[in-house]
């Protein structure tokens, strides 16, 4: 059995006889809007292409109202509702270190995103927002609160963010779970959540 030292020795012996430098990577975001509204527009366009839903609260709605409107529109029965955000009251509470398996019957989970990415329509979570990582996948539907002011231009900028640098687990969600493995037919909810709805709401993760 060849172990660490054998493998490293083989690499040292075999690697190409030149040391190529690391290139400089530009941000490539000069063409992006500088204002939040412009970034939101880019974000929403891509999000919708990726199967996500953007649902802004109307003037007289509370976040709770907006969420109920989403449930009504999408015929979601939120019998078991996990909320990880103070703005929404759920009927199941998560604590760090909880087992994942008991979450199998959760209908809806409400999470706050750390930030969004306009280029891809992605939202970012770490274990701090998820509390139990598996909730992001075992729930049937996700409701995500996103502060529009946290939307960055593109992935180059997203990877510069330092707010998840020390996270154990960081994930970009872009729309819901999807597959096209059967004859190329696009189906949402292959294994993870069936829908992902983003409600813009000021606040921080």
């Amino acid at each position: 059995m060849r172990g660490k030292n054998d493998i490293l020795a083989d690499i040292r012996r075999n690697k190409p006889g030149f040391a190529a430098p690391a290139p400089h990577v530009p941000y490539y975001d000069d063409d992006y809007p500088r204002d939040t509204d412009g970034l939101v527009e880019r974000f929403v366009t891509t999000l919708e292409k990726m199967g996500g839903v953007w649902c802004a609260p109307t003037a007289d709605e509370t976040l709770e109202d907006t969420m109920r409107r989403v449930f009504a529109q999408r015929e979601i029965e939120a019998t078991a509702l996990v909320s990880n955000v103070p703005e929404i009251t759920g009927n199941r509470r998560l604590r760090a270190g909880d087992a994942a398996r008991p979450l199998h019957d959760v209908d809806v989970a409400v999470l706050r995103a750390r930030f969004g990415v306009a280029e891809t329509g992605s939202v970012c979570f770490t274990e701090r927002e998820l509390i139990v990582n598996a909730i992001g996948y075992l729930a049937q539907h996700l409701i995500v609160l996103l502060d529009p002011r946290t939307i960055v231009t593109n992935l180059h900028r997203a990877y510069q963010r330092d707010d998840y640098q020390n996270a154990r687990y960081t994930v970009f969600h872009t729309g819901p779970s999807a597959t096209a493995d059967i004859e190329g037919v696009l189906v949402r909810g292959a294994q993870g959540v069936r829908s992902l709805t983003i409600i813009p709401a000021h606040g921080s993760a």
């Binding site: 280029e119 891809t120 992605s122 687990y169 960081t170 872009t174 779970s177 999807a178």
Partner: peptide
């Protein structure tokens, strides 16, 4: 597609 639906970073 611009990105996969899930891009997951496992550290610990």
């Amino acid at each position: 597609s611009p990105i996969t639906q899930y891009t997951s970073h496992f550290r610990s």
